[in-house]
Amino acid sequence: MSPGFIHMEVIERRFKSKGAAVITYLVLALLCSWTLGPIYWVVVTSFKEDKEIYGSEATLLPWEFTWKNYRTILFQKPFPNFFYNSLRIALVTTSASILLGTLGAYAFIYLHFPGRQMLARSMIVTYLIPPVLLAFPLFALFNKLDLIDNVYGLMLAHLTFTVPFCTWMLMSYFKTVPKELHEAALVDGCTHLGTLFRIIFPLSGPAIAVVTLFSFTLSWNEFLYAILFTQNKWSQTITSGLSSLMVEDIFFWGQMMAGSVLASLPTVLIYFLFQRLMIKGLVVGAVKA
């Protein structure tokens, strides 16, 4: 039985009268337009000429449909390079976050060592520190390590917020895995690493999916470090690259919107493909801390 079918049944049971159902759907439609409206505006604007964008009338559809903005950012600006950099950074950050997060979460849940509770709590505290507070110290550190203005510096910077996030999410999920499985593996001679990667990790598919998606999205959308730690167009990411379309006090809205549409494609695609796994991961316990 599909989740959609279940929802229908629930709604029909809950709303005996058609009127109530109509109102429910109207509210849902309103919420959908609230959510999708800005996205629609971004997409439509990306196909408009500058003159129309700056026109005195707001148009729901382009008067003259144009690919000019896409052509400009793809062939006259280093946008493909921004895209490539963002992809590399997000992939490496996500992989490293899952690896480190899994090891960390396992240690906090299954190993007993002094200060375990305090360390576990400090993980969430580090996640709560606003990135802007870390910007200057990180810049100074990366400068000493010759990591300014290259993608490796950004990969390390992104790990400062993705690792605590992944660890915390996975800790919540690992708590729901029966301890007996862990103990049985150890009794049968498995090492801790073996237990983690042969028993716990395979059982944590939905949670891994959730942290993968969130880490990827966090890294992909990150703006502050990208803008501060990169300087030339060969090391910039999509987010910092898009902001270079603001020249003096004039913003190239058409090109920015076209860039935003392209920049959102990977995350939209990933969410679209893995949404069921994600919902399962969220519901099963990944965020039940």
């Binding site: 200057f136 810049f139 100074a140 400068n143 300014i148 501060l228 300087q231 270079s244 603001m246 006090d249």
Partner: peptide, 23 residues
């Protein structure tokens, strides 16, 4: 000579960070 063109709205913030960071 390595010339980096910084968009106007970013220059103040980037310079502040670079100066604070010693670079």
């Amino acid at each position: 000579v390595n010339v980096v063109i910084v968009p106007g709205p970013q220059i103040t913030r980037k310079l502040q960070t670079a100066v604070e960071g010693g670079a």
